Amino acid sequence: MAEDDKPDMSNFRVIVLLAVDETEYSEYAFNWYRDFVHRPGNFLVLLHCTDHDYQSMRDASPGQTKTMIVELTEKMKFIEDKFGQLMNHAGISGRIQRGSGKPGEAIIKAANDEGASMIVTGTRGHGKIKRTFLGSVSDYVVHHSPVPVIICRKH
């Protein structure tokens, strides 16, 4: 989205960045934000990060690459439709933005670019060992964020 295409957010007191994906944890984080944090003056930026393996795409055959792109496009449309409907139903002002690359880094970059006052994200609640090997997006965000972070953990 070009700089000129951004909606005028000067009337909003608080810009909140909410990181989403196709999981139930993101929907839980959205609902938690809606129920406990959202105020009429807030502007919500929903960020979906495409975390695909560029190396796999480069190494794939043309047919496999086409399949990967179709799957990614369908996934993004599903997320945008789902969260767009949730925002409309809740009467929340905002927009959906696509990010790319490593999700943690994309979230921090978007928060800085948008002038976010806070970041809200869900967590899958991986155990200590899995988090050590796979890393944790929420851990990365907490340790690198310039603004407060709310992590919504679904029980």
Rank of each mutant, 00 (worst) to 15 (best):
G84C: 08
G122C: 10
W32R: 07
R98Q: 13
L72T: 11
T23R: 07
D5E: 09
E105M: 07
T67G: 10
E24F: 03
H126L: 15
M118Q: 12
L18R: 10
D59P: 02
R13P: 00
V45Q: 05
K6Y: 08
S26D: 04
R39N: 04
I79T: 11
K77F: 00
D53N: 15
S56D: 09
T132Q: 11
G91K: 02
Q97S: 09
G41F: 07
H38L: 04
R58Q: 09
L46P: 01
S56M: 14
N31P: 00
D5F: 15
T121Y: 01
A29Y: 02
H126A: 13
E105Y: 03
R39Y: 01
Y54W: 08
N11S: 14
I107H: 02
T73N: 14
Q55S: 14
K77Y: 01
K82T: 14
E22F: 04
M118V: 01
S10P: 02
T73M: 10
S93C: 12
I108Y: 00
E24K: 11
A90R: 00
G125A: 03
V70E: 11
Y25R: 06
F78G: 10
N31D: 07
I15R: 14
R98A: 14
G122Y: 08
E3L: 14
M68E: 04
E27V: 14
H48M: 08
T123K: 05
C49H: 05
G127P: 01
G127V: 02
L86V: 08
A2Q: 09
F83T: 11
V16D: 00
G63K: 07
K109A: 13
G125S: 01
D51T: 05
P62W: 07
L86W: 02
D21M: 11
W32V: 05
E27L: 14
G125L: 06
R34K: 15
T23N: 08
F133E: 00
S61A: 09
K82P: 07
M9H: 01
A60I: 03
G115C: 08
T50A: 09
S117Q: 05
H126D: 10
G122D: 04
E24Y: 03
M9D: 02
K109I: 00
D81Q: 11
Y33C: 10
A60T: 06
V37S: 02
V70W: 03
T67V: 13
G94M: 10
I79A: 12
K6H: 07
V14I: 12
C49E: 00
M118K: 12
D59Y: 12
R131G: 04
N42D: 15
V120K: 03
S56T: 13
P62L: 06
A110E: 05
S61I: 09
V16Y: 03
H126C: 08
L47G: 06
G115L: 06
E27F: 08
D59E: 14
